[in-house]
Write a protein that binds this DNA or RNA. Sequence first.
RNA 1: GGGCGAUUAGCUCAGUGGUUAGAGCACUACCUUGACAUGGUAGGGGUCACUGGUUCGAAUCCAGUAUUGCCCA
Length: 918
Amino acid sequence: MNIEKDDFTLKSYDPSDIEQKWQNNWAKFKAFNADSEKGGEPFCIVIPPPNVTGSLHMGHAFNTALIDVIVRFQRLRGKNVLCLPGTDHASIAVQTILEKQIKKEGLDLEEIGREEFMKRAWKWKEESGGNIVSQLKSIGYSVDWGRERFTLDDQLNKAVVSAFVLLHKRNLIYRGEYLVNWCPSSQSAVSDLEVEMQEVNGFLWHFKYPLIMDDQNVEDQYLEVATTRPETLLGDTAVAVNPEDKRYQNLIGKYVKVPFVNREIPIVGDSHVDMSFGTGCVKVTPAHDPNDFQIGKRNNLKQINIMNKDGTLNNNAGKFENLDRFQARKQIIQELDDIGLLTKIENYTHTVPFSDRGKVPIEPLLSTQWFLKMENISSDCLDKLNSNEPNFIPLRWQKVYKDWLTNINDWCISRQLWWGHQIPAWYVLNDSEDKVDQSTPYVIAHDENEALNIAKEKFGLNIKLVRDKDVLDTWFSSGLWPFSTLGWPSTDSKDFQKWYPNSLLVTGFDIIFFWVARMTMMGNIFTAKIPFKDVYIHGLVRDENNKKMSKSAGNGIDPLLLIEKYGSDALRFALIREVAGAGQDIRLDFDRKKQTSSTVEASRNFANKLWNATKFALINTTKNVNIEKIEFESNKLELSDQWILSRLNKTKNKVTDLIHNYKLGEAAKLIYEFTWNDFCDWYVEFLKPRFNANESSSRSNDENLLIHILNDILIMLNPFMPHITEELWHALNNHSQNKLLSLQKWPSISSDHINNDLEKSFEEFFEIIRLIRNLRAEIGLKPSQLISIYLISNNSKLLNFLTKLASDIKLFTKSENVYIFQEAEINKKDYAKSFSGIVGDLEVYLPFEGIINLDILRERLTNDLSKVNKEIEVLSKRIENKNFVEKAPKDIVNECKLKLDEANSQSKSIIQKLKMLD
RNA sequence: GGGCGAUUAGCUCAGUGGUUAGAGCACUACCUUGACAUGGUAGGGGUCACUGGUUCGAAUCCAGUAUUGCCCA
């Protein structure tokens, strides 16, 4: 683990040299394996388990980076941290992938058989899961790999079965015939959430149903209806009108005849019918439309299912049997037209439900499914939300969660798939029976033995059991994730005792309903607790065109590509730096031709800067450093030392606070600014002359302070850039064998060192340096050309301060002499033909008589004057405003007055100089 | 139709009522200096979407409009 310093100083930064090495070291030392026996306040996150559908995308990298920063931070803060990794089996998605492969081989599911299919599925899981784990490792995730879980593990299956049995015991699970969202492509029911509404340019077909009147000729009178789905007329069991509708009131109770199937159906009154839409008459197909289903219930209508599960019509469709639903539509329109019943075709834009996975229109289908009653479960969660359980960050996402829980429907939890948790339900048949139907009794049990015992007790000995073939919705097992991973249903497991409820959940806003709400509901039922205290919601990663990155759109960027190019540290830092406004989507720039990202490149450059700053320290410090014992003496500190310590402690203070408040982007920016601007740009420059001097009594103190500062930077940055900081810390430290930066302590803050007045003075100092450099540039001096500088002011405190830093001014401005004068001591006329500028109440002169073109000088002064005059104008207007003086806070008014005074004297001075030029 | 966001420099974004609105990238000029050219120094670049209001004072608060993104029905 130890690194030779001499070798290090020769190297330049290349992330590929170091990242793999530290990932291996962390693994070797089991650095992030949690120990429930250890003390310390527990902190637990279970990661959102990625689907085993191939590989990770940028969204996962983003989520990972955020979680890892928080987890590493809490670890450095001394908490007993568990970060538990795992993957999700993703029933529909994985089964779809496998079915496609099988189809390519010219086979279908039935030919393959359940056993062979499951073999293939597990093989796929091993490959995809392994791939995902190695990707997570290459990001540098500090999770406990010893506790990795998969949602289909035996232990998690035990949890799922127990959960199902418990829910059933509490009468929350039922088997019922309802209209479900049927995906004819995957031939499974899907939940509301897996349905995507899409706007479609379709048609509204108007056609006539012949009225059946007791006293008149049937053929003469018609009722006109309009529909976007004419094929469903075969399943119509009524026509509904609004009872208030004068046009049709008298027809309620009469009948019309459905063409083709020649069914006589009633005209019913239902107040939900919109009189102004279409003709005001609605054909009602209770078995194929959610609204019609409700009308049917209210009016006791028959439900006639006309559809097979693959989307073809069944024998209720008469002569249209076996036609595909869309083919049937065409043919029915044609035939309606042929017999003169089609009256009108309107263009009509409407929204059609599509299956999220199957990408075909959903068919609302009457079928027998398993449901979970949601009413009480969700209202219990809503109650807890009143006391901020869980606490959403940012808070506005709470509303999304709340609205969904408020308008919730029962959850269809069965899926007609093979890959997943098989439902622990056994149908009870007589020895002679072999067909399960809607009325077949069933028992729910943990296993077949238990089921058999229960069944025998209930139904006698001459029975046999058939297990339900279906599996549970994937989100059913995901809902248990925060506690099934910790050993539940056993609640006395050490992990569960120590780390439940979890401290935090970090996830994207797109799965607040899918996952967050399911976890809170399941958690609340089974543990009487909301499973996590905080929920930190982040945005999605979008591509350069502001489109959500997704596999289907093909616009994803492989995180590994960027890691290879710029390093994981750079990718992590780039993603986090972009987060500043939490919960906002982030847009990652990416040049697809060059395969580059300037955002990530900027972060890589920052890493390089840090690398070289450390190299500077290594070159200039003694070779035997024990970083944990580094101390410096406060009485040997120079002004610049005091300044950097003030900046450092302020930064530590703010960064600590920001991370606690999940403002990771701001924290990252702050460390970046401190490291680059304060430390590298200025402080290292202050140190150079000291280190270049041959002898100095404070040399070792200087070195110790430098290492102290770097050490603090490295620890603060460690959660964001774990690899490079680990590498540099070991490079600096000669006593780091068997130690890891990742397991050190977060730096303590000494507020004694914070000195706001000093920081202000240094700000002014930097302004002066910038002005002088700027003046030099304007004159066109070469960097090598040395000059003299005159600093003149009446502010003796400032002059005193500058005198102490005179040698630094010399160095920073390439000057051979720096002269500092009280105004009284000099005659400004002597400097009339100098190049000059003003900072606050200090005037700077660069005497260059003869060399400078007086016109340039005059132009500069004139520009300065107009700027100052503008300022005077603005400020005096403000001061002359009585309301401002009376109502604004005093310190604001005073500040304004001071500024005006300063501007006035600046103006005077410039005018004087201009006069002297003439 | 309901809800939630966004609109600030060429680009990506900070900025919760108080100087002359900031950063990174990009751009321009100069610079191979003993940490770093993955760099340094200096510079140019903004009618804070629009319209009204509140206020001594608005990018910031309120109302409306426009454009745009997402969620739900």
